[in-house]
């Protein structure tokens, strides 16, 4: 399935296996993401989606298989310095935001660029303010994470990842912990990033969002990729009966809680 035609994929996973003690979480995952693509991973809870993302940035180490991010063979990395070099290029946004509660919003955005990349403080602050404007939180630079709503915290977390100027960003169920009314503002931010051409991998339960913004969608269950393809194909004509069953269930629920999506020009991508 992986294509070597035009250029090598930015992320390539091959036959990834990972177990926690006796639980086999990943059982042979293959996945490709081209530069500039948005790829969504959907599937029931506990199917190994978040584990997969953590493997890509080296937060978890698979027992078997290969991970390539650009020229880096992540599965072969050993030293801290090598992992740090990788993580400078790969942004990560967490379900629970995980902002640093003792730092102001602005400091949350500047601490890594200053301490990890060695950037000038002033320069980092200017960049941080620009990014806060981008996520529409320029008026919150002096606030502390505890004073912000979930949606605001998550947008700060996205800006914090962007402040490292990463090549790609991994989103781990970033709207799952949010109140329904703040989901839209976070999705809007992600949509704008994708429109700008940022490579994004999203683990998500927002089916309609995934359908709308993705270049490719992967459906995982029990640690394997059941099916993948274009969003139109996967959501409208799923090949696997398991995909169909999952989508029926997920979309049925989504229909009841349906919220207005932000109007977008992204659908054409």
């Amino acid at each position: 399935m992986p294509s070597n035609d035009s250029c090598a994929p930015l992320i390539a996973l091959r036959d990834l296996h990972l177990s926690f003690a006796d639980t086999r979480v990943l059982r042979g995952i293959d996945l490709d993401v081209q530069r500039g693509q948005a790829v969504s991973i959907i599937g029931p809870s506990g199917s190994g989606k978040s584990t997969l993302l953590r493997c890509i940035t080296g937060l978890l180490r698979p027992q078997r298989g290969q991970i390539r991010v650009g020229d880096t063979a992540v599965h072969e990395l050993r030293s801290d310095a090598e992992f740090i070099a990788l993580r400078k290029r790969v942004g990560f946004v967490f379900q629970q935001y995980n902002l640093f509660p003792h730092l102001s919003v602005l400091e949350n955005l500047t601490i890594a660029p200053c301490k990890v990349l060695g950037r000038e403080r002033r320069e980092a602050q200017d960049e941080a303010r620009r990014l806060l404007g981008k996520v529409r939180l320029e008026h919150k630079e002096h606030a502390y994470p505890g004073e912000l709503s979930g949606g605001q915290q998550q947008r700060v977390a996205i800006a914090r990842a962007l402040a490292m100027r990463p090549e790609l960003i991994l989103f781990d169920e970033v709207t799952s912990a949010l109140d329904p009314e703040t989901v839209g503002e976070v999705l809007r931010t992600i949509r704008e990033l994708i429109e700008e051409g940022m490579t994004c991998v999203l683990v998500t339960h927002e089916m309609r969002f995934a359908e709308e913004i993705s270049d490719a969608v992967y459906f995982t269950e029990h640690g394997v990729i059941v099916e993948h393809g274009s969003p139109r194909q996967l959501f409208n004509e799923p090949r696997s009966p398991r995909t169909r069953a999952f989508l029926q269930h997920a979309l049925g629920r989504g229909e009841r809680e349906r919220r207005p999506l932000v109007p977008a020009g992204a659908a054409a991508r």
Partner: peptide, 25 residues
Amino acid sequence: ATQWEAARSLGFGRGQILRAIILPQ
């Protein structure tokens, strides 16, 4: 542990995480 994880994902080393993220808290 999520504070460690978040800091690691930003490229902080172990000592840096302790000094800049964990100890102040």
